[in-house]
Structure formats: C-alpha cells, structure tokens
Design a protein around this nucleic acid. Structure first.
Lengths: 138, 138
DNA sequence: GACAAATGATACTAATTTAGTATCATTTAA
DNA sequence: TTAAATGATACTAAATTAGTATCATTTGTC
C-alpha cells in the first residue's frame, strides 16, 4: 500500500467522521499530518472518482460523497495504485514468457484473490466503527 | 513480490528439479530467461544465505543446499525484500505518528499475517510437486 | 467592491527503489 | 594452457513514489 492510498483513506475517514460539514484540506492536513499540497492532489483525485464532494471559496472544503459503508479500501487502492497484484510475474513491461504455466504464479494468483477480498471487506464505515470502539483519537 | 524474488524462486526450482548435479548460471539464465548478470548476483545472495551451494571452475555451477521442502517462498522474499509488509504505514523513514492507534493499520496487520502464512506454506518442494502434476515444462 | 481563504488545475523536482550491466580476479577440469 | 565457470564489487539506468510550487478561479465576509 502506497502513501497516497494511506493518506486518502485517512482523509476520507476524517470526512466521514464529520459527515455533513465541509472540512478544508488545510485542516485535514494538520490533523492527519499529511503534507498539504500532496493532500490537495489526493483529494482532487478522489473528487474525480466521486468519492468526495467539494465546495470552493471562503468556507469551502470537502465532504464524503457516499455512505461510508459503500467505500472500501480496495476502491481507494485501485485509484492510486491501479489494479494491484502481489507479483507482476517477473517482467513489468512484457509479461513473463512462462506466465501461462508457471507454478509459482498459480499459487500467487490464489493468494492475491484472498488478499483483495480481505481489503474489499474493509469499508470506511467499518473503520469508523473500529474508531468508536477504541475511544481514542484519530 | 520483486523480480529478484521471482527469479530466485525459479532458479532454485530448476536446481531442485535436477538435484545432485551442478547447474551453471549460464544454463539457468537461458532456460528461465533471466538476465545473466542479474542472476549471478541473485545466486551469490542465495549462497550467502546458504540456500544453494556452488563449485567454481570448468564444470562448476550451483546446487540446492537443502531439502526443497524446507525452503519456502517467504525465505526467499525475506532475502531480497527484507521484512515484508503490506503497508509501511505512511512514512517510509519515520513511523507514522498515528501508528499506535490507527484503525487502518490494525486491519492491515491482520491481513499481513495471513499473507505471510500463505507464502510460508509454499515450499520449493511443493512447487516441484505442482510441476510434476501439470506435466508441462518449467 | 476588495479581500481572504478556500478549491481547480497542472507542472516540476527530489528521493528511493528496482532492474540491469560491466569488469576483473580466482578456481578448476580437460 | 586454456576455456568456462564462480567470487566480488562497482556502476548505470529506468521506473515509481513522494513531495513542492504556481497561478487561476470561486465564494463568503467585511
């Protein structure tokens, strides 16, 4: 998982926590300690994928665009990391010559599916519940 | 999984297939289509970790050093990728400030353990069996 | 209307990691 | 003696990831 993905999830989490209000990127940057400009770009990407809404101007900011239960970590990963794979099977550009009958690959593909399923089961809503349970900040 | 890891697994697999003989890096490079010099470095690394043995000179080459059932994919991953994690938790150098109570991290850690276990269950010996079953080359 | 504070859009730089190449010395069987 | 192998190490290149900077536009408030 890249930093972009992590930042994005945390940003959405903060928005989801204060659903209804518009929260500025400046504020999220401070509370989540994400480099401001980096966060800006991330949020714009999220707008492009319709995970968040924005309002310009003085009291502008961002808002989650959907029910947090319907936003999963995989959604976010896909935005920032494209289709993810545990292994690209040995040749980033050209696919490995042995791809079709590689025994290692077959094993990896299976694990890959399991992992994606795990991440698919983590929604922002779920993380919110975790947060409430643990009572501490964040 | 990086290319080094993949190459390494495949190289060991070829050695395991012809256990007993010394196989040259030149030959492995050809059959597995791994860049020769890259493979050389990988094999030396494997020697350092005592997964393979070598003999210099005219009819030299490499050999697996252990029972293939006792070499797992995780062993190889650890050599070339260090301790692996699905996420470094947002700050490659300094650990993320929120690390201790980050709900996302807690989820990731759990998945991480599962994945490692899956890879721990893939041994070179196991892959060899897969190979025999499928009958095709490689 | 002017201003301040926000987003929209986009270009750029830097750091890190990964992948791959090259070179020279040493070993060893034929 | 020589050819073909490994040992050791240095170097280059490509790609990805992370982070910074700039300027335009929007919008609430004084």
């Amino acid at each position: 998982m890249t930093r972009s993905t992590g930042y994005a999830v945390r940003a959405i989490l903060e928005l989801a926590q204060k659903r209804g209000e518009f929260i500025s990127s400046r504020q999220i940057s401070k509370s989540q300690r994400i480099p401001y400009q980096f966060l800006r770009r991330i949020l714009q990407e999220l707008i492009g994928h319709e995970l968040v809404l924005s309002k310009g101007g003085r009291s502008g900011g961002f808002k989650v665009a959907r029910n947090p239960d319907l936003i999963t970590v995989v959604d976010v990963m896909n935005i920032f990391q494209g289709e993810i794979q545990l292994s690209d099977c040995m040749f980033r550009n050209k696919p490995c010559v042995h791809r079709s009958n590689c025994v290692l690959r077959k094993r990896i593909v299976k694990i890959d599916e399991k992992v994606k399923n795990e991440f698919k089961n983590i929604s922002i809503g779920g993380l919110l519940k975790d947060l409430k349970k643990q009572k501490g900040g964040l």
